[in-house]
Design a protein around this nucleic acid. Sequence first.
DNA 1: GTAGTTCGATTGTCCGGACATACACATTGA
DNA 2: TCAATGTGTATGTCCGGACAATCGAACTAC
Lengths: 245, 245
Amino acid sequence: MELELSVDRSSPVPLYFQLSQQLEAAIEHGALTPGSLLGNEIELAARLGLSRPTVRQAIQSLVDKGLLVRRRGVGTQVVHSQVKRPLELSSLYDDLESAGQRPATKVLVNTVVPASAEVAAALGVAEDSDVHRIERLRLAHGEPMAYLCNFLPPALIDLDTAQLEATGLYRLMRSAGITLHSARQTIGARAATAVEAERLAEEEGAPLLTMQRVTFDDTGRAVEYGTHTYRPSRYSFEFQLLVRS
Amino acid sequence: MELELSVDRSSPVPLYFQLSQQLEAAIEHGALTPGSLLGNEIELAARLGLSRPTVRQAIQSLVDKGLLVRRRGVGTQVVHSQVKRPLELSSLYDDLESAGQRPATKVLVNTVVPASAEVAAALGVAEDSDVHRIERLRLAHGEPMAYLCNFLPPALIDLDTAQLEATGLYRLMRSAGITLHSARQTIGARAATAVEAERLAEEEGAPLLTMQRVTFDDTGRAVEYGTHTYRPSRYSFEFQLLVRS
DNA sequence: GTAGTTCGATTGTCCGGACATACACATTGA
DNA sequence: TCAATGTGTATGTCCGGACAATCGAACTAC
């Protein structure tokens, strides 16, 4: 079986990227079956009219994604396991949407408040300086699923309530030209207080899943701090990890 | 300020790796301050007597780790944020130990059982075939912290109870020559049953943090399936994420 | 003064080659 | 029979160069 691969040299898309996408598609589509060898790099490069470094760059990106495994003296083969998606800096909104849940958002609060000590420390701004505060209720199938409380530094983005109800916060930030880079997260659990129970239609004392997150852009600025609580019967965190070798 | 960098060509350690380690150390140590430019690649290569691709490979590995950011036409600079550690495929034991908690483990069960449907599906073995089952209680400061129930395929590793109490499961597997590759994890929460409460010295109905994980080695084989419950007052999941661009 | 343009600097992409290293397998030897 | 050795093949590392794309700043023109 010969895999059909080709590159378009007139395209502005980098050659290694064209190749890696085709390989990834072939794996996803099943044309490259798990465990199968990929053929050696030299020959592959010759077949495509590319140099070996370019082919290696394409392969390496898929190795980094966990789709391929290289073995010296053996070859490169497709990992045969149910690799879903590696852990991304994901938003709840996108998670739900990709699960076909058609999420709804109700904005409870959208205002500017002085930063508390906790918020100031997380965002790296002065205490009592102005920060945006938004509180949202995320619903799926009409049922409350999560309560989201977020703080953003001022002058970063203007938060329109209508937009917040139509899409997710991360998507808004990205379309505002902010390139998200990393986030620090803590996931825990606790018993619901009376107020929390009321918000999420749970009983007081019921277990809640909690997540706190500080998100940074590519310059290292903190761009968002959030405290979220989820109903564990409706949501859990699910992700794939890769070892860093 | 000139950063002291040098490579040892007689060392078997790859040159790019030597360089990346020195740069990482310099960042960690503070010699390279956040936001500072790294100097252009050409000049850096010349100074070290290396080629540009080698220098680029070193820098790239740190970019992948989230320590550096490249900007075309500008240069490469150190990310200025409190980057802790990226999310690793971590073991609870290592987590605790690195936090200086001196964890203790009590092995409750270490036996071989026929695989249930759930376990068989997770490990990719036939139902009712033999699998190892181990149940452990993880303690810190004499207090129970987590209850760990794990299943392993047979003939992979022999599980000595004494060893299990002395170290973590992941460390045992690694030293048995198994190279961990990826894991699929689910984190949730639920109320403790009477049995769970008893084990963890909690009250019935108290919130518990739960984690299920299937771990794969580099050939894609499932090598471990685990169901863990944590006391949320004693433990929470904390990690750093990077965006995949 | 402001907007548009040019230009230098720096990374991004790609090439072709060379040698080292590790693994699998066949061969050889005891 | 079994272990040690050799051999082929594939990836790992490294080199030196070339041109393109992009960013920032200085410069120019209105």
